[in-house]
Every structure is written in C-alpha cells, then in structure tokens.
C-alpha cells in the first residue's frame, strides 16, 4: 500500500504496538491467574471437586460485582476470575486499538468495520442473552 508523508503512523508501527499490547495482556492476566491460583490452592486444596453436573450458580463468580468484592477480600477464586476477565478483554482491547489506528490512518471504512465488531461484543456483554 502506498504511503506518503502525511501519515505518521504506518502499518508496521501499528503491528508492533498490536503485538506488544497482546503480549502485555496475556502476561499480566497469567500473572493474576497464577497469584489467585496459589491463594485458591492454599485455602481449598483438600476440598473435593464436583463438576459432574453443570450448576450455573455454583462458583458464584459470574458477575463483575461478585468478583470485585472477592478480589478486595483476597479471595483466590475471585482473583482467578479477574485474571480470566483480563484475558478475555485482551483481544477486545486489540479491537479498540485497531479502531484508533485506522482513525489515525483516515481509513474510515475500517473504523466503521471495527466499531461494528466492537458493538457485537458489547451486545454479548448484556446478560440478557444467557437466558
């Protein structure tokens, strides 16, 4: 693709930043999951696991509020879930970043495409879908 002087942000720069963003997201979420895992194992390593039947309310860790309160109390399971959420939002952050980079490149068609993808993900955030 032709590039001239008015672009101060090239595809190559975008790719470098994108790569770094993804790596930082993965490493930080793994660190949080690991920390939560250690606390979780210390507190409940001797308990028995029971995953034979799916029970939606069992972990009690499926809302942001429950996780937030658990993290404040240094609850292992809540910290793991927080790390998992960080991992889930890493690719979403990548979409947000891509939208900005297309905006700077004045590639408005792809700003719209990126926004469409983001809207779809925001719709999935609504818990009405779960039923």
């Amino acid at each position: 693709m032709k590039r001239d002087g008015k672009y101060f942000f090239t595809d190559k720069d975008v790719q470098l930043i994108l790569g770094t963003l993804l790596r930082v997201g993965v490493i930080s979420s793994m660190a949080v999951v690991f920390l939560g895992g250690v606390i979780y194992l210390i507190s409940s390593h001797a308990n028995l696991v029971d995953y034979q039947a799916f029970d939606a309310g069992k972990s009690g860790m499926s809302s942001i509020l429950a996780i937030y309160q658990g993290v404040l109390h240094m609850d292992g399971a809540a910290i793991i879930q927080f790390g998992t959420l960080l991992l889930i939002f890493t690719p979403v952050a990548r979409v947000v970043f891509s939208i900005f980079s297309f905006l700077i490149e004045r590639d408005y068609l792809y700003v719209v495409i990126g926004l469409l993808v983001l809207v779809v993900i925001l719709i999935s955030l609504s818990n009405k879908l779960v039923g």
Partner: peptide, 24 residues
C-alpha cells in the same frame, strides 16, 4: 481471540467458566 472473547463473555455470565478449572 476476538471470536472466542465474544462467546466467552456469554459463557462467563452463565457460570460456565469455573475458576477451579480455568486456572490450571
């Protein structure tokens, strides 16, 4: 990653992502 994130959010709300399994 993005495709999986979209469905992961739905699973998350539903309680299908359990910390005891997700961690290891």
């Amino acid at each position: 990653g993005v495709t999986a994130a979209a469905s992961a959010v739905v699973y998350f709300h539903r309680g299908q992502i359990d910390p005891g399994i997700a961690m290891p």
